[in-house]
Design a protein around this nucleic acid. Structure first.
Length: 818
DNA sequence: GCGAGCATGGTTTAGACAGCATGTC
DNA sequence: CTAAACCATGCTCGC
């Protein structure tokens, strides 16, 4: 189909597409248009990655935004310049924050035609105006859910919603959110056009059924993708052909493939099953890639390596930089996000010849590659007690990264076999296999617990019947004729929510309590909220001293077990513990970190051998600090979870005690990215805890706030004020403090020479800091840095030796980028 | 007596969403 | 029910 023949889209679009070099639509895109995607039709598109899904979304959104009047057959309705606010608003839902910014950047190409694009995620809102002024909004599914819960007014103006990677409704953890959110948006707005984009899956027809949508189900790709398996000295491809691909002596199969690809000037993406494997493989492959680098590339890579070392001074960072110098890299969630984007960019720029990655990269931003090697097709899975094979969908997603449209003549995706039997098995299992069907996971207790409360609290249902009726709009209902299971879990979760005071029941009628509304608005799992409330109440009741802090009695244990039979609250059972006459000490930071760390909203840290002993000991040493009862050592599972939370809490306490980042990564066996992740989650949960405590009229609000601020900046109490100045992180704050500057107010009064000395003679940094502290005359001109003990001063002369910004990263290890 | 090289056994294991306030056009 | 790479340790063997 020619781009000028697309109905329903703004007049400028065909010209724009032609300028971009797009003359004709790809077959699946044309199918989507024929199905009416530009005329308001609902659509499910199940197509391979990189087959032009984004353009389908753009067509749908632009036609919706442009408004009805430019529908089929209508003439050019006035100049198509100026804001398109006369039409509706489009929402694009993504699964990852990184994808939100990537997509928004892509959509910004339409801003010159007046289409305003906005982004909204948990840690980032696009600046320059409210979302209500935007025509196209990109957001994560959780953010959209949250916006619906909080009654964002513009939701009603939506005329089109696009759900990207909709096959993720299959995910047990986050799938139900997408499912429920789509159902809510569609209930709110009967005329809402729904477009769902999915990887190729087996049961796209069921999704279409659910969404009352047309279906485009296609395997078409713009560049050829050959799947295959390497075994021995040959690459066996799915078309039956074989290529000789020799593995030299002492060389790994992967290295041979990387070398072979490089000989053809292509790059390789290697998927492995653990972080450690990714790092080890990158280290080894660097010796292969190094030989292929020319002088320019070496230089460019050395620069990137330096930037990597600047991000953080951990071992991970160093190892990564070493590999990058050789033209290889690893990529996993233990990396800081700056690390990740440096690697992604360098790979796209073809500087890096190979990236060894865990699945982060398969689901994340677009990083295509000539060849993809799926080295490990099994991954450790504790629940099955060993190595479990990856799903076909997951392997296909990885393989789909092969071949860069417009750049590579073709893509190849390769699995590795160690035996002839394995060769056959891999062909059967992955090359020729169809992906598994996508299955709703809504009936799981944690999912319903959260979404039932939110559904009642935000007014979508006010009775048990109403809830069940609402659930009829979900994929779960489409897929399961039998309603008994869903009904049973619903009743169980309603009991749970009632017992914990999140909602009240009057006959069939349901109403969220004030607390229930707060929990829903804060986006907390009700179980997290209950844990936090119980912990805080227990502390207040016990008078904040060690009185009554004895370990759990049997009754208390039962109350905290996952979905206990009677849903009895720990706080009720723990009544009349202590005498109230002692002074009420506020809870310690460690106690508060532990409280939020044992909540289901915080991902658990793995307990290594030796950890159990170490943290059991710590638990007894600091017994008086914990909020709520400590489970008995003899209840294995519960105690282990509790200890694992203690490990997390201890990590956070270390961070908030100004322990070096590399010391922490060492001590806890985590990467820099993990620290940042934990800190971020803690900030959010402590913020929520603060709101809850405030609402319940508790005394511990200031203690919670301090613990949160400390973890936010990674500083001890005395630096909290200084670290709140923009441009001052944990390291600079400490140096200023040592130089006698202890508060923001001090910064406004202090002698400039001292400030400059404390900031190691960096004039621009010092000026910035003073300005941010509110000083009237921040200029550092003609100021000589004072000599301060233990602080090395860089050469004066106004500048950071070339790096354009005022910040010198190695000087700061703060979390400034949130 | 010493150290390189190997066998052995123990250890470890992917990912990542969310609040609010505040400022500003 | 299932793995595999990494690492520390301790051994053998050759000199």
């Amino acid at each position: 189909m020619d781009v000028s023949a697309i109905p329903g889209v703004p007049d400028w679009l065909s010209g724009h597409l032609q300028d971009e070099g797009i003359e004709a639509l790809y077959p699946p895109q044309a199918e989507a248009v024929e199905a009416g995607v530009t005329e308001g039709a609902n659509l499910v598109a199940s197509v391979p990655t990189a087959s032009g899904k984004t353009l389908v979304a753009e067509l749908a959104m632009l036609s919706a935004v442009a408004g009805e009047e430019s529908g089929p057959g209508s003439d050019a309705s006035g100049a198509s310049s100026g804001p398109l606010s006369d039409g509706g608003k489009a929402l694009y839902i993504v699964p990852l924050r990184a994808l939100a910014s990537e997509k928004a950047e892509e959509f910004e190409q339409f801003e010159r035609y007046g289409v305003e694009v906005g982004v909204s995620t948990g840690n980032y809102d696009s600046d320059g105006g409210w979302l209500a002024d935007k025509d196209v909004i990109v957001a994560t599914s959780e953010k959209v859910d949250s916006l619906v819960r909080n009654d964002a007014a513009w939701i009603e103006d939506l005329s089109c919603v696009v759900a990207d990677e909709v096959h993720l409704v299959d995910d047990g953890q986050r799938g139900p959110t997408l499912e429920v959110t789509l159902a809510k948006l569609r209930q709110l707005n009967a005329g809402l056009q729904t477009v769902a984009l999915s990887a190729t899956i087996g049961n796209a027809d069921e999704l279409a059924d659910w969404l009352d949508a047309e279906l485009v189900d296609s395997n078409w790709r713009p560049i050829e993708l050959q799947k295959g398996v390497h075994y021995g000295q040959a690459l066996h491809l799915e078309d039956g052909s074989q290529q000789r691909l020799e593995v030299r002596n002492g060389e790994s199969e992967t290295a041979a493939i990387v070398r072979d690809t490089l000989a053809d000037d292509g790059s390789t993406l290697v998927f492995v099953n653990s972080r450690r494997n990714a790092e080890a493989a990158a280290r080894r492959l660097a010796s292969t890639t190094r030989e292929f680098l020319d002088a320019d590339e070496r230089e460019a890579l050395a620069e990137i390596a330096a930037e990597i070392r600047d991000v953080s001074d951990t071992e991970t960072s160093d190892d990564l930089a070493d590999a990058v110098e050789g033209g290889a890299a690893f990529h996993h969630a233990g990396l800081a996000s700056d690390h990740r984007s440096l690697i992604e960019d360098a790979f796209r720029d073809r500087l890096l010849k190979v990236v060894c990655a865990t699945p982060t990269l398969a689901a994340g931003v677009n990083t295509p590659s000539r060849r993809v090697v799926v080295r490990d097709w099994r991954r450790y899975d504790g629940s099955t007690g060993g190595m479990a094979p990856l799903s076909v969908l997951e392997v296909h997603q990885m393989m789909g990264r092969a071949g860069r449209p417009g750049l590579d003549p073709y893509g190849e995706a390769v699995l590795l076999a160690n035996s002839h039997d394995e060769l056959d098995e891999l062909f059967e299992r992955y090359v020729w296999a169809d992906p598994e069907p996508v299955q709703s996971k809504l009936a799981a207790e944690p999912a319903l617990r959260t979404h039932l409360l939110a559904t009642v609290a935000s007014g979508f249902a006010s009775s048990r019947e109403g809830l069940l009726e609402f659930l009829e709009r979900t994929l779960h209902a489409t897929q399961n004729a039998d309603r008994n299971e869903l009904e049973r879990v619903t009743d169980r979760m309603l009991d749970y929510l009632e017992v914990n005071d999140f909602l009240t029941r009057d006959g069939d009628q349901l109403q969220a309590t004030g607390l229930g509304h707060t929990v829903s608005r804060l986006y907390l799992d009700p179980m997290s909220a209950a844990e936090i409330i119980d912990g805080l109440r227990d502390w207040e009741r016990a008078g904040g001293t060690s009185a009554g802090r004895e370990r759990a009695e049997t009754a208390g244990d039962e109350a905290e077990a996952e979905e206990p039979a009677g849903f009895t609250r720990a706080s009720e059972l723990a009544a009349d513990h202590g005498d109230d006459d002692g002074p009420r000490e506020p809870p310690s930071a460690l106690g508060l970190y532990h409280l939020v760390a044992r909540t289901p909203d915080m991902y658990e840290l793995y307990l290594r051998s030796g950890d159990e002993e170490e943290f059991t000991q710590l638990a007894y040493e600091r017994e008086t600090e914990f909020l709520g009862p400590m489970p008995s050592e003899y209840e294995d599972d519960r105690f282990e979870d509790w200890l694992s939370a203690l490990k997390t809490a201890r990590l956070l306490e270390d961070w908030a005690s100004e322990i070096d980042e590399n010391e922490i990564t060492d001590r806890y066996g985590v990467g820099p990215g993990d620290i940042r992740g934990k800190v971020e989650t803690t900030q959010w949960l402590l913020g929520a805890a603060e709101s809850l405590a405030g609402e319940l009229g508790m005394d511990c609000v200031p203690a919670i706030r301090e613990a949160r601020t400390r973890v936010e900046h990674g500083v001890k109490s005395e630096l909290v004020d200084l670290a709140s100045v923009r441009g001052v992180g944990r390291k600079r704050a400490r140096r200023l403090y040592e130089a006698g500057i202890r508060t923001r107010a001090d910064l406004r009064e202090a002698e400039k020479a001292v400030v400059l000395g404390a900031l190691r003679g960096r004039e621009k940094t010092a000026e910035n800091v003073l300005e941010n502290a509110g000083r009237e005359d921040p200029s550092m001109a003609e100021v000589e840095p004072a000599d301060i003990d233990g602080i090395e001063t860089t050469t004066t002369g106004g500048g950071d030796g070339g790096s354009g910004t005022a910040d010198d990263p190695e000087d700061q290890s703060s979390l400034g980028d949130f």
